[in-house]
Simulated assay, not measured.
Amino acid sequence: MLGQIDFGAKAGVPRIGDNVFLGTNSIVVGKIQIGNDVLIAPGAYVNFDVPDHSIVIGNPGKIIAKQNATRGYIASPVED
């Protein structure tokens, strides 16, 4: 779920980068930036910025740095 916060320091909506996988029942809320190549695990709660090449797990969310975090979750473009 992507959600808007209507008041306070994080009022606004999330900005999602490229190659981001949002797991089932994950919650991403507020004026935050989700980087590129990010996997947000099922059930994770994210109300903070997430850098590129990361996995977020848990509630509250915890960031784990990982290159190619979405490999196997997002299909690569097919080349001719």
Rank of each mutant, 00 (worst) to 15 (best):
G61M: 06
I55A: 03
Y45A: 13
A9Y: 10
G72R: 08
L2G: 14
S54H: 06
T24K: 13
L22N: 00
N59V: 01
V46H: 04
D18A: 13
I5L: 15
V38I: 01
V20K: 01
L39W: 09
Y73C: 05
I32M: 03
V50T: 04
N25G: 04
I63G: 09
G8R: 08
D37I: 00
R71V: 13
V78W: 05
G12M: 08
V38T: 15
A41Y: 00
A9H: 05
L39C: 09
Y73P: 03
V38E: 11
A44K: 04
D80V: 11
Q33D: 09
V50N: 10
I57A: 11
I27N: 12
G43E: 11
G3R: 15
G72Y: 05
V46I: 13
H53S: 11
I40F: 01
E79Y: 10
A9M: 06
G30R: 14
A75C: 07
N36M: 10
I57Q: 09
N59D: 13
G61C: 03
L2F: 13
F21V: 04
D18Y: 00
D18Q: 13
N47Y: 05
P42A: 11
Q67L: 12
G12K: 07
G43S: 08
G61W: 01
L2H: 04
D18K: 12
T70C: 07
K62A: 09
I64F: 07
R71G: 01
I5Q: 13
G12Q: 00
L22D: 01
Y73R: 08
V56K: 03
T70Y: 00
N59T: 14
G17C: 08
Q4G: 03
I32W: 00
Q67Y: 08
G8K: 06
V56D: 08
G43C: 06
E79G: 14
Q4M: 15
R71C: 03
A41N: 09
F48D: 07
Y45W: 08
N68R: 15
A9E: 14
S54C: 10
K62N: 10
V50Y: 01
V38H: 06
V29S: 12
Y45E: 09
N36L: 06
I40L: 03
N59P: 02
I32Q: 02
K10R: 15
G30P: 13
G12Y: 02
A69S: 12
A75G: 02
D52M: 02
D18R: 13
Y73D: 03
N68V: 02
H53R: 15
I55Y: 02
P42I: 00
I55G: 11
D18S: 15
N19C: 01
G17Q: 03
M1C: 05
F48G: 06
G30Q: 03
A44E: 00
A11Q: 14
S54F: 00
N59G: 06
S76C: 06
T70M: 08
V46K: 03
A65Y: 11
V50A: 05
K31W: 00
K66H: 10
A41M: 11
A9V: 11
I5M: 02
P60C: 07
L39T: 11
V20P: 03
P77F: 08
